[in-house]
Design a binder for these strands. Structure first.
Lengths: 259, 259
DNA sequence: ACCTGAACACCGTTCAAGT
DNA sequence: ACCTGAACACCGTTCAAGT
């Protein structure tokens, strides 16, 4: 099979641009006088721009090259593969997150810092819907992701959660935000593509779903929940849910803290 | 722009196979005597088999058709698009989840039911790593996803969480499991592809990371956490984290419950 | 009712060749 | 050092034609 075929020729599977990638400095020679003015930074930011505008599905090396007025193959001078480029884009936008310094102000409440950081991470995932699948696919060890990890670790230490519970706490909080931001970002994207507001899309989906008898129980349950929550619009309901979920997580942390 | 180009020709954006899709009954006529023995069920299960074996990236209509000894175009008799097929595959594996009936035994502890259901969902995402991106992309309103939603809603009602907090509770729990299962499934897949055990891969990554000075602080923090947790292996640590995160969520629910 | 072949407009990547 | 053209081995999907 495949395993037998590359028995001897197997190269040691790629892990990350940050570990096995091409040197980052290509195209940044003394004068910066490349024929085309290309370098890794310019390529990365064009990638982010294109991903924001057209999404991950439509992004291609050829499309990006056209945007930069160059052939697709020139990109391979700066980057080993499309995957490496996406990993660079992922780290680039991770840098947009404003990180608190949890140890700077010893009087600051960790609850407020946690609320801010989760909101920021959520907004990041929503602003760049293409980010979420990439976060799922790479090791996230670029400088900006590392900075975020460190910040999260220091923040969680300030909660008073005992050491053996800290990793679980980080998982509960940040995997939740990841899941929430993923779904939210994707829904917004679908609405935009359909040329509908979120409320229009929601109404449309509810109408379509209402036509199918099997789905009636979900409708009822959904209606009950809509009524139980405060807001009128999809945005209101979602904000309500996010806030209340984070509040629940904070309550959980407090309950498991030894004081 | 694009909006102007299809001003009049714009068709009402597709929402789901379950709403706008082709009739499911194609190829299931009286005798079941198609030339090729194809029908939607056979196509869907072949899709799942192929996705499990080779992953989402390698899956293609042409590859699937070859597997079924047919040309790629015959598939379009049964299904409108690749996306529809993936939505069918997503619902098919959602059916693997064993759902408790939360209202059957009034003495059963909701905590145990929640622990079982989250473990089951986590295992599902890990067993089928291709599932997670699909869950992020579709509306998940196939029969099996709907059954899961209903089950979750009934379960959360039994916790005693007040109605206006229930949606937040569901989000906190199930988006967490989604995020956790996504990362875990992907890591296992990478290890398998590299031909390494999880522990070997972990050691290899740590070694590579250790070579880079900027990453030293993460290493230290990671080491501390590893030491604080009980297990020796990657699997042990992950199980520990998952259990402790779910425990934290349960504590949060209890803390926000009016008794 | 079901299946096919040819075609269209794409992909990522390699490789030898140019400047 | 940097960029290109041609080529390879793919994609999803449409459409007219076959049985």
């Amino acid at each position: 099979m495949a395993a037998a075929a590359d028995r001897d020729t197997k190269r040691p599977a790629r892990m990350s641009v940050w570990l096995d990638g091409k040197a980052a400095s290509r195209g940044r020679r003394a004068g910066g006088d490349q024929p085309s003015g290309l370098d890794r930074e310019r390529i990365t930011s064009a990638t982010v721009r294109l991903l924001d505008a057209e999404g991950l599905a439509k992004f291609s090396m050829r499309r990006l090259a056209a945007e930069l007025d160059v052939t697709a193959m020139s990109l391979y001078w700066y980057v080993d593969s499309k995957d490496d480029l996406l990993e660079l884009a992922s780290d680039a936008v991770a840098g947009e997150l404003v990180l608190p310094d949890p140890d700077a102000d010893p009087d600051a409440d960790w609850r407020d810092q946690l609320r801010d950081l989760t909101q920021g991470y959520r907004a990041l995932l929503v602003r760049h819907p293409w980010l979420s699948p990439l976060v799922g696919h790479f090791l996230n060890i670029g400088p900006n992701w590392v900075a975020l990890s460190l910040c999260v670790q220091r923040l969680i230490r300030r909660t008073g959660l005992p050491p053996e519970r800290q990793a679980g706490g980080i998982a509960a909080v940040f995997q939740f935000v990841y899941g929430f931001g993923t779904i939210e970002g994707h829904f917004r994207k679908r609405c935009a593509e359909a040329g509908l507001t979120q409320d229009e899309y929601f109404a449309h989906a509810m109408g379509a779903v209402g036509g199918r008898a099997e789905l009636a129980p979900v409708m009822d349950a959904a209606r009950e929940m809509v009524e139980a929550r405060s807001g009128e619009t999809v945005d209101d309901m979602r904000d309500h849910d996010f806030t209340s979920a984070v509040d629940l997580l904070i309550a959980g942390i407090e309950a498991r803290t030894v004081r």
